[in-house]
Structures are given as structure tokens and as C-alpha cells.
Design a protein around this nucleic acid. Structure first.
Lengths: 116, 116
DNA sequence: CTCCATAGTTCATTTTTTGAAACTATTGCA
DNA sequence: TGCAATAGTTTCAAAAAATGAACTATGGAG
């Protein structure tokens, strides 16, 4: 994907954070264990395909675990690994930047945040 | 106080960092003022179109300034605004995460960056 | 033996992004 | 006049990513 002349140090994290929805998904998981349907609702209007794609990828990279609970109805829980939890400082730095420099926050977004 | 993990808060930054090459480009600018051709060489094999697209977008968002120096040959310098410089903690957090959890990191890449 | 709820999968299509190639603009100098 | 060096722009095709609609799997309750 990237040339070796690029600052390779960030390569791993670039791959992780890549893709529409990925960062929002990670944000959700930062709040703790979440079920598939729960994530789907929170990330509306994400498609179930995209959501599974992202989750599978994150699982593959060792950032989240997937646990199936049999029973009726069955359900599945997604949770950060230690590696995933360790992303928190990055998100905090983003949060801080946004507080001071993010001027694009739209009113409806703000409301969504407050109602969450 | 707002929930730090709430996705909406971080939308502005997601938009900023979005797109292939964007993060790598920001990394370059973190090292100081850069000319168009310089960026193009460092980010090889980026196309000039994509590079201008990215630079224009970052300019629009207030993260970089573009300064034209007439003369022969003319040249152009791109530089972070204060807002752009303030991204540094985010990159540092990424760097730290990669040190501890990025399994793709190669030592010579890291050195190349540090010597830059 | 059908239904419900959960959590997906499959495949075709659309949308978005990226890229390659060729071309433009500026201006001093030989 | 024509050239050299920088910094782009333009156009169109190709590739990648996202979406939508419909379908599958599970297993107990009725």
C-alpha cells in the first residue's frame, strides 16, 4: 500500500484507522462491550455488511474480540483487547484538538452528542 | 461535561485526517515548511493531482498556509498554521501506540524518521 | 413445523477515490 | 524567440469502497 520512503512508523496505525466508520466504531467500543445490533443502531445508517467488514478487520488486527453467546436469541459481544484499549490516548488527543480547533461541529451533531 | 468517547465530538478531526496520503502529508509538514516538489518526492508515488487535492483541502480547513514566492523559478511553500501544529499530540500518541502495539514496525524505518 | 429475534452473508450496483498522461502558467535568461 | 525549472490543472479511465436488497443460520416457544 505504501512506499518505503514514507514515514513507515505510522503505517500500522494508518491501516487500523482506515475506512469509513472505523474511527466511529472504535469510539463506541471505547465505552465498553457492545453487541452487533447495538453498534448497528449507534452507527446508523451503516450497512450490516460494512459493519461486519470493519469488525472482522479489527479482530484480525487484534484490537477487538468477538464472543458468541448461544441461546435464544443468540447474541454476540464485541470488546476491545488490551491493544484496543491502548488507543485511548490517541482519541483523547483528538478530543482535545477538537475542543480547541474544531470549528466544523454542526448543530445537529452537537445535539446528537448531547442526547446520546 | 461532555462524554469524551462520544463519536460526534470527533467528527471534525475525522474529516481532516480522511483520505489516502493525508496523514503522511501532515507528518511531513510537522517537520517544518515544505515545497510542493519536496512533498511530492517524499510522498512518492503520489500523483500531483492528489497532492494538490490534499493541500487545498488542508488549506481550506485552516491547517496549512500556501505561500507563493515569485522569481525564477517560482516556488511555493506549505506550512502548518497554529491549528496544524496543534495536531502534534495526536501524532505523538500514534507514535507511542505503534511502539507498543504496532507489529509491523521495522527498525530502519523508525530510524529514518528520527533522522529526518 | 412455523415464527421470532439476533446476527450475520451474498451479490450486484453505485459512489467515491485515485491515478496516469498530457497539458498550462510564470518569468528571467541566452 | 525559445528554453528551463517550478508548480500546478485537466480529462478521463481504473480501482476501491460502500450500499441495498434479499437471503441464511440458529434454536426454543407456541
Amino acid at each position: 500500500m505504501m512506499d518505503r520512503s514514507c514515514p513507515g512508523v505510522v503505517e500500522p496505525i494508518l491501516e487500523l484507522l482506515d475506512g469509513k466508520w472505523t474511527l466511529l466504531l472504535l469510539f463506541e467500543l471505547l465505552n465498553g462491550t457492545k453487541r452487533f445490533g447495538e453498534l448497528r443502531r449507534k452507527l446508523q445508517p451503516i450497512s450490516p455488511k460494512t459493519l461486519t467488514d470493519r469488525l472482522r478487520l479489527l479482530e484480525e488486527k487484534g484490537l477487538v474480540t468477538r464472543t458468541l453467546y448461544p441461546g435464544v436469541p443468540l447474541h454476540v459481544e464485541y470488546e476491545f483487547t488490551e491493544s484496543g484499549k491502548a488507543l485511548q490516548p490517541i482519541f483523547e488527543a483528538m478530543w482535545n484538538w477538537t475542543q480547541e480547533h474544531g470549528t466544523y461541529l454542526k448543530k445537529d451533531m452537537a445535539l446528537a452528542v448531547l442526547n446520546n
